[in-house]
Design a protein around this nucleic acid. Sequence first.
RNA 1: GGGGCUGUAGCUCAUCUUGGUUAGAGUGCAGGUCUGUCACACCGGAGGUCGCGGGUUCGAGCCCCGUCAGCCCCGCCA
Length: 600
Amino acid sequence: MTTTKTNEATTLRSRRCGSLRVTDAGSAVRLGGWIHGKRNLGGLVFLDLRDRDGIVQVSVDPALVGDAVRDTAATVGKESVVLVEGDVVRRPPDGVNREMATGEIEVKARSVRVVGPAVTPAIPVARAKGEALPSEEQRLRYRYLDLRRPELQHNMILRHRLLQTARRFLTSEGYLEIETPILTKPTPEGARDYIVPSRLHKGEFYALPQSPQLYKQLLMVSGFDRYFQIARCFRDEDLRAERQPEFTQIDIEASFVEAADIIRLTEALFVELWREGGREIAAPFERLRYADAMERYGSDRPDLRYALELFDATDVFAATELGIARSAIAAGGRVRGMRVPNGATLSRKQVDELESLAKGAGAGGLLRLKREGSELTGPPAKFLDAGARERLALADGDLALFAAGPDRITNPALDRVRQDVARVMRLVPDGVLRFLWVTDFPMFECDAATGALGPTHHPFTAPHPDDAALLDTDPLRARAQAYDVVLNGMEMGGGSIRIHDPEMQRRVFALIGIDEETAQRRFGFLLEGLRSGAPPHGGIAMGVDRIAMLLAGAGSLRDVIAFPKTTTASALFEGAPSPVPEADLRALHVRIDGAATVTS
RNA sequence: GGGGCUGUAGCUCAUCUUGGUUAGAGUGCAGGUCUGUCACACCGGAGGUCGCGGGUUCGAGCCCCGUCAGCCCCGCCA
């Protein structure tokens, strides 16, 4: 991917070698790049010279340059940095390489100078067709080499373009880019904080921000009515393929808005981002209320690329003698499940694996029925009456899978089953983008263990205007003005309209067990701000890493982050985290419990 | 905190089933031949703490226990 056509020239080079084309034939160039590969034919030597724009072939002919320059080219090690002066020439017709962007030309060298000799690289940068990548561990250990690979260069360049697109678009919409602190006040709510000890305040700590949430609300109070930031966020939680301990969000907040304003803005931004990534997408996106998403998919971020919708079969099973179903229904639960078209082709073993997924998600088991010809078969079949087959609406060859119990158990179980059925039955189409807004989240969720109320989104989310009265009577039924944007089952961002009324903020704190004194201690600065003239406001935050990963077609966030962490949050190339000298700890008033320290 | 997979040459992987000769291949690397290659070709060559520690055994890359690291997943991620 050529990033710039202008200003490539520096004192030491005139062009990037990867940007040369047949139209440059006849021009003299000075190039600087890395030795990607070398072919020494005895007399002639070919060098593949690489920079961020690509690779060009340099031919070194002793008849033109003499034996000394030829020998330099013949002995230079892979990944060394060389300066080449020469002339861009068309290749002979039978020498054209159609697989290279620069394949119609080559650079006939007049001089070759090694300015950055390289030891033999620990992991290969240039790979033969079909050659496997080095292990993740090696790639992270030798990150500076891995980042040289054209794929990762492409990904980082794409990421740059996405960030610039976001900046350009939001700026054109009147949004101001404002930076917020990295050293912040610890917030015992939510994810674990990364903690930074204070030298000047003995026994006190900063935290790295989990998000700029409170700062952007204060910026609204201060009158910067449209704010954005490409914000680095930190969460000390365990990692996943799509979760890093530090990550980047496009963070947005605006005043005098309702949810519809933020949703429209986000859609327009996504259109721009995906266009930059080479995909045209259509707005507005589909929408699902949270309650409907849970009912139809068992998930608040359903993957809509395949159907497999859930349905309620409680009435089919209610009258039966089937013990599991009866007891679940008697306890106030339901029997829900999905039809799997042609699912009868799944083997017993495959269905067993689906059941173990469901069990792993907390369900007691999975009820399975098949329709074969006009008959229903499967363990529960003998309990079902004559009308059951019609009511289940199974076609010949269909499989039906049910879970019985309360929704809070069956939703996650059926969600897992649904995803895995789609995977096993190959129902996930390639190249399809299904954007979705999930709206009307509940304000609170109930901790299964303690029964305590917690915020579904965060404690600053405003309730739905129609549901404010429910806060006093039935808070679990109260909806929030919160919205998530989902793509193909992955949460890409989320936001809400915030509480701007200090009295409402106090009521919400009280409901989630934050008393007046605690609220004052933790969030006093926000409450003060809300009392000092706060406009109605709301916003959203989107995961840059995930967006870049999808648009790069990468399988892991690590492939779109320059220096990512491992599953144990280590940075292998630099060896972070690491112990610090005892004296440094003393200055910070920190003592390590029983651990050795280094003194270097 | 829990589950799964992996760890053998610089790199990617075999060998392991059933403990027993000198642990192999490709690639890379060093050397040699070669003036139109582009996965250059050809020749012969060097290269091993079988992640680490302990145990069982006459004998362990292989079996057992522990441990470390990487990856995937659950919990967690307001």
